[in-house]
Design a binder for these strands. Structure first.
Lengths: 227, 227
DNA sequence: TCAAAAGTGTTAAGTTTACACCCATGA
DNA sequence: TCATGGGTGTAAACTTAACACTTTTGA
């Protein structure tokens, strides 16, 4: 390869992943408790260095797959953190992503091996370096995006009840939603389809299971808006 | 410095700046026409490599100042472009920023020296590499941000008429705004203050000049919303 | 039989949009 | 005197928010 930029410095570049899951009506993050120095015992995001032969996006996917075993996960780039001394070891520029995963599907063994745990978003312990700021930016961006696009379904199994969907959006927005208004809005979205299946686990009476139809969504005329 | 990450690869990191200006009732971008190989004669954004001793944000400020002579400019990070072969020379990861400048204030000599020109946002020529995508993302993000926060004032001189403010928002949103509705909304924002000065240049009758009061803005109770 | 979650409409308040004319001035 | 941009209010349409009771069923 031609070396056009021979005289320019190179810098370590890493990715860090803010991994969201929805568990027991609460948003959770998958955090690592470090087993080695430096900062043993402290909490951090899952991260890794970008390799010379992979894109930054691919690095984020790889790092996520290393921890969860999941491929084809919904991810968005959040921000790049570039302060000179943000990593006390050496200079590292970090590109942050968030991922939305269905909490039923990840590989529990891999997660255990990495000493990672699900932590409720309202009980996040202090994290290393600038990871707190990464989390708060990712949360904010995810919330904004979830208000305009149907990304929330990535956090649910294929079939879900309306109550569960509402609980999810309440967790994302951090505020209560009126049940009737919520269901009215859902009813107007033809791409949130009622199936003939019934969930008997979460209630005695049973609740209809719905699914999100992405093809129908792509043909919609009106804006997505659940809040 | 301890070398924790000795075995990890380093990568070139650059910044690219999407520089917005508001001129003659149109949004413009400051673009460079390359005077040297490779890609001589082709258009690009202003960019530069991140140095080992400066943050990525500082690199963006430096690159902007090199071209315009301006310090303390409103800038936002847009996105990081990390495809392996996005730069055909060598691998370079680029962090993109947009800047909003008052088009009356930049250093014309410096701009000339860099062979840079203002180009209307609706007449952008094809740009090198992935710079087209950078511009379209930056434009979209700027538009979103301008709808929620009063960043538009960075594109205007301290004093401005309401017609000029409206023209600015029409240029940002890309659509016409009703004059009476616009002025009604402005009137509700106490932090857009009428001064006793009159602009006699843009009309015979003369129009009141207004200014944006940032302290008053920070005490506001209601959301910023001009559209 | 009762506790727990599912399901269902209406009204008032607030917000947004559409719309047209007179005013002041310099050329 | 007229062409140009400055400045002003109201009503209809639409959107949002508030609100309470009946149903089903397993324990």
């Amino acid at each position: 390869m031609t070396e056009y930029y021979k005289t320019e410095s190179k810098i370590h570049v890493s990715v860090d992943c803010v991994i969201f899951g929805f568990h027991q009506d609460a948003l959770n993050l998958l955090l690592l408790q470090r087993k080695m120095e430096p900062a043993r015992g402290r909490w951090s995001l899952m991260g890794g260095f970008v390799r010379p032969d992979e894109s930054v996006d691919d690095a984020a996917k790889r790092v996520l797959a290393d921890l969860t075993g999941l491929e084809d996960v919904y991810m968005e780039q959040v921000h790049t953190f570039g302060a000179v001394t943000r990593d006390p070891g050496e200079r590292v520029i970090s590109v942050v992503y968030y991922a939305l995963i269905n909490i039923d599907e990840y590989d529990r063994e891999l997660v255990q091996k990495h000493n990672a745990y699900w932590v409720g978003v309202d009980n996040i312990p202090p994290l290393i370096f600038d990871h707190d700021e990464m989390v708060s930016l990712a949360r904010e961006q995810m919330k904004q995006k979830a208000a305009r696009e149907p990304i929330g379904f990535n956090l649910l199994p294929e079939l879900f009840t309306l109550t569960r969907l509402q609980n999810l959006y309440e967790a994302i927005y951090g505020e209560a939603i009126d049940k009737r208004n919520f269901r009215k809005r859902v009813a107007e979205m033809d791409y949130i389809e009622k199936t003939d299946k019934i969930d008997k686990i979460s209630s005695k009476r049973g609740a209809s299971l719905y699914k999100f139809n992405i093809e129908a969504y792509n043909c919609r005329k009106t804006k997505f808006k659940l809040c």
